[in-house]
Design a protein around this nucleic acid. Structure first.
Lengths: 112, 112
DNA sequence: TCTAAATGTCGCTATATGGTGACATGACGA
DNA sequence: TCGTCATGTCACCATATAGCGACATTTAGA
């Protein structure tokens, strides 16, 4: 379908990237601080290069925007794509929810 | 975080798997029919083994349940996990939406 | 100007993942 | 019983991806 959606789903697939989004949800962040955060926090730690690669992916999905300020790079969370994608998928299945509730009921009952 | 969420995100990352969910949203489906559907529909086509692998992943994420009926396997969509995950993530960023709207405004304005 | 800090980029490795064909199992029907 | 259809499982291949170190670039500050 839409290639834009594809990038969002791909970006959200990785737990480290979701952690980055969580971090950015608390407020904008300079890349270096992000790296420090993950070097300390995550199990085993992850280096600067790795963090930047993840930022690239998140940027491609437009989940993260950034602004240069001197030699600093401020990274901003952009929650809009996540909202859009989730809305689309949830609404797509809302109609199915009642139906599948019945179907799953049948499924369970037929199992015993 | 929760390993259960991890599986859901991973499962949703692949476009073929999302297509399978779309197909199942229209109603339960026997594995063979699913395979036929994707053999014909998808560009280049994807074989039975591939479809089953995807079903395994979807099952691990509990997005697909199934029931055996003789030599048939009926696959059911379970929209609950998707709903849960989306709700959690959207609500997590709802508070951030107003803030980030302002931040992004700043970002844009500072760029010119 | 010169140094160090913050970021960007490149090439490499290891593992995960999508996909296949071949073969095994299990149930239905003649 | 026996062939066949639907499914399950296995070993294998190709590519994508996460992660790293090393080096290049840019900017603040002495």
């Amino acid at each position: 379908m839409s290639a834009e959606e594809d990038w969002v789903w791909k970006a959200l697939a990785d737990p480290t990237r979701r952690a980055i989004l969580d971090r950015l949800a608390k407020g904008p962040c300079v890349t270096g601080d992000l790296c420090d955060f993950f070097a300390r926090t995550r199990n085993g730690g992850i280096g600067r290069t790795g963090v930047m690669k993840h930022l690239d992916v998140l940027e491609k999905a437009k989940l993260v925007l950034f602004r240069r300020e001197g030699r600093h790079r401020w990274n901003y969370l952009n929650p809009v794509p996540i909202q859009r994608v989730c809305d689309r998928w949830v609404s797509r299945y809302v109609r199915g929810l009642a139906q599948s509730a019945n179907r799953l009921k049948d499924l369970v009952e037929s199992k015993r």
